[in-house]
Write a protein that binds this DNA or RNA. Structure first.
Lengths: 242, 242
DNA sequence: CTTCAATGGTCTGTTTCCAGACTTTTGGAC
DNA sequence: GTCCAAAAGTCTGGAAACAGACCATTGAAG
């Protein structure tokens, strides 16, 4: 034995994922793809956004320009101007999923699914074990209604919003960030498979079960409901892969 | 309503936590405090470590020098030289905990504890739901034995190793990183309270229960055992705070 | 006692990133 | 029509970070 405590692998991992420009493009792209900034809306003003992201305005502008040239943003100047989101998630085509999986690299798919299972189950369980305020209950209900009423084109976005709401309602920013990260890692995959009516209906049942368990204060039930739901998604993905 | 999907807060968070130098110092310090590189051992060679951390050698050297001047490292040159860990966790003194909590900022404590609860429970549950190889079983048993045999000065380090082993054995690097991160956020707090015999014994029982549940393939039991254990730790911390 | 390989230590030019001041465009308010 | 405020667009000098070549030190092997 080495006398060392751990695999040591996880702690000496990269401090930076890339340069500031690349990371910024990635971030904005995620915000757009997840629908945090919906179609037709605009990003915050450059100065403000640069401050939020902790980078200089110059760097932010480079990232915005890249996204503009790639067709995700429409930048208008002058008062009431800004960087407007123009992107619409394209209808998935055969082969998209395979491509997305390949981009993740070997093991990446299982890693992402496992991670997501762990953090989302944890979030639901913790939320179910908390005393909820009226406002929190309403938020939850409204997100659930949002997915159920979603037009097909908006389905993924509102589904994301539902899942993230659970994490955010726990009141733990770290946990919320982890769930957001987990969701991000599967977005490209989910966007690469069609949204089918039977799946939507199935998901709606499961979503309802999750919310019910949380509102009843049943941590164990909430956890199990989320686990089932995510296993369904995972199975769906694996199905399209074979 | 804004039509936007989420609180939007979590996605537009800072891209960079600080400059490369600061982040590197932080990382290395964490590796030292967690005992990933134990007392008397040395860090990997500069060139190699710089590559692992994804930073330039110059920046890494600045960080190492800072830690050397702060008394954490002893740097020797020549063949068989290197940056040797010289740090020993100091015996906690009254007030250390309060100070550590204040450094986290308001809400930081609950956030960290909640996050840890979610990810570690998730990891244990997932691991218990997996078919384990003989090697995995042995690793788990050996980490458990490690904590139980630990000298007081080594207790925290080996406890960390035990908890992280569970996460790493899931085979999900993302989950392992999340657990490592969660642990990091409470290390300073744990290091600020004394290691007492009754607590060690209590923890030993709980650790054994966790391992037993995992080896039996009982996800629900493993999850509950970890939850109990972490609640104990949280209660301990809160106790010292009042 | 010479050699050698592994390691930390130093130097140089380049690229990235930054802070902040300044300019231009735009559309609404008066 | 004029003015104004909010936004994007531009410029400059400096700091941070990097890549890569090279130097110096050390201790073991032969």
């Amino acid at each position: 034995m080495d006398g060392g405590a751990t695999g040591a692998v996880s702690l000496l991992r990269p401090v930076r994922a890339g340069n500031a420009f690349e990371e910024t493009v990635e971030r904005l792209l995620q915000a757009i793809k997840l629908g945090v900034v919906a179609h037709g809306e605009k990003l915050p003003p450059e100065r403000e956004l640069a401050a939020q992201l902790g980078i200089s305005r110059v760097t932010l502008r480079e990232a915005i320009r890249a996204l503009q040239e790639a067709g995700f943003l429409d930048v208008r100047r002058g008062r009431y101007g800004g960087a407007f989101v123009v992107y619409r998630p394209p209808s998935p085509r055969k082969g998209d999923l395979r491509r997305a999986v390949n981009e993740m690299g070997a093991g990446g798919l299982d890693d992402a699914l496992t991670f997501r299972m762990a953090v989302e189950c944890g979030a639901a369980q913790i939320l179910a074990g908390t005393e909820l305020t009226e406002v929190q209950r309403e938020t939850l209900a409204s997100r659930l209604a949002g997915v159920n009423d979603a037009a097909p084109a908006d389905y993924r976005r509102l589904d994301t919003a539902f899942h993230l709401a659970i994490a955010e309602l726990t009141g733990s920013p770290l946990l919320a960030a982890a769930c957001a990260d987990a969701r991000l890692r599967v977005t490209d995959l989910l966007n690469a498979i069609p949204v089918l009516q039977p799946n939507i209906e199935h998901a709606a049942t499961q979503h309802a079960a999750i919310v019910a368990a949380i509102l009843e204060g049943d941590p164990e039930g909430a956890r199990r409901a989320v686990a089932e739901h995510l296993e369904g998604t995972a199975a769906l993905l694996r199905g399209f892969l074979s």
